[in-house]
Design a protein around this nucleic acid. Structure first.
Length: 294
DNA sequence: TCCCAGGGAGGAT
DNA sequence: ATCCTCCATGGG
């Protein structure tokens, strides 16, 4: 099953097929994936469009998708570990079985997209991301006649003034943070790739020094960007549901909620957050059997 | 008109 | 440490 919830712009979707562009050895590969089979036994068909679809590109794409779609995650083990009915998390499993955590394809893109999420709606942040790509991203064309705008590079955004960014993408006051972070990345004042080597706590501390990056955005980047699965972003929904399910409704602080999730679920904290998020937004599973997700 | 959207920064308690 | 208020923008 393909998952939702990630830290990059929504993929182009047509029915049950998803399309994205991946860069490999300087060439751009447009691919479309389509899942067939059941939730537990499935295969993912992939078709590619590129200037040269070499075998190496196919292998690259295969491992890329394994990471991005979290196909190696042993979700069955997750369900078994927390199957006890006394564990509130277990009640989310029936409806979400098969849902996996996605990884972002690009660190900078993941961080910027996470910054856009602050006090914003999913719909709006996706719209802003599209505008960012169209106005500031490199356009690549494909043999089939289609074209695609890549996510802008740090250099492209570092050159912008916050005002202009705001008027073109309607990202509001977040523009100042986006420009600030882009410039820091360009000057090597922050090395996103090196954070992958750091411990969770160390990387978390470094990220908090970036403009527009607080605990929630930092955790989003740690989880979806760097793949640190003990990270559990605490937004309003997670804050509510954790207080309700695990603290008898008593309001704990957001930081305490994040700490709690990490200590209780360890390396499954990111997954616990993903499942609890859906549970918090859609409410408890109704008895009127809801079947089939797409 | 008011309130909310996968919050963060700065200041006041 | 925890609690305020403001911050752009779009949708209900």
């Amino acid at each position: 099953m393909l998952s939702a919830q990630t830290a990059e712009p929504e993929w182009l979707r047509q029915g049950l097929s998803f399309t994205d562009v991946e860069t490999f050895n300087g060439t751009h590969i447009k691919y479309t994936l389509h899942q067939v089979g059941s939730i537990d036994e499935f295969t993912i068909n992939v078709s590619m469009t590129g200037s040269t679809v070499a075998e190496k590109a196919v292998n690259h794409l295969r491992s890329h998708l394994n990471v991005v779609l979290g196909l190696k995650d042993k979700v069955q083990s997750f369900y078994e570990t927390y199957a006890d009915p006394s564990e509130p998390l277990s009640s989310t499993f029936s409806r979400l079985r098969g849902l996996r955590l996605m990884r972002a394809t690009n660190l900078f893109e993941s961080l910027i997209f996470s910054i856009l999420s602050q006090n914003n709606s999913v719909r709006q942040m996706n719209r802003t991301a599209r505008l960012l790509m169209q106005h500031y991203g490199t356009r690549v064309a494909f043999p089939d006649g289609s074209s695609h705008h890549l996510f802008p590079t740090p250099e492209a955004l570092a050159k912008c003034e916050a005002r202009q960014l705001r008027s073109k993408t309607s990202m509001g006051y977040r523009a100042k943070s986006v420009v600030g972070v882009s410039r820091m990345v360009c000057r090597n004042e922050i090395r996103l790739d090196e954070l992958a080597m750091c411990s969770y706590d160390e990387a978390f501390g470094v990220l908090l020094d970036l403009p527009g990056v607080g605990p929630k955005v930092a955790d989003c980047f740690l989880l979806y960007g760097l793949g640190k699965r003990e990270a559990a972003p605490v937004d309003v929904w997670i804050h509510r549901i954790v207080s309700k399910l695990y603290f008898k409704g008593k309001k704990i602080t957001r930081l305490a909620a994040g700490r709690f999730l990490r200590e209780r679920f360890g390396n499954w904290a990111g997954y616990a957050q993903l499942y609890l998020f859906d549970y918090a937004r859609r409410g408890p599973v109704s008895s009127k059997a809801k079947a089939g997700r797409s």
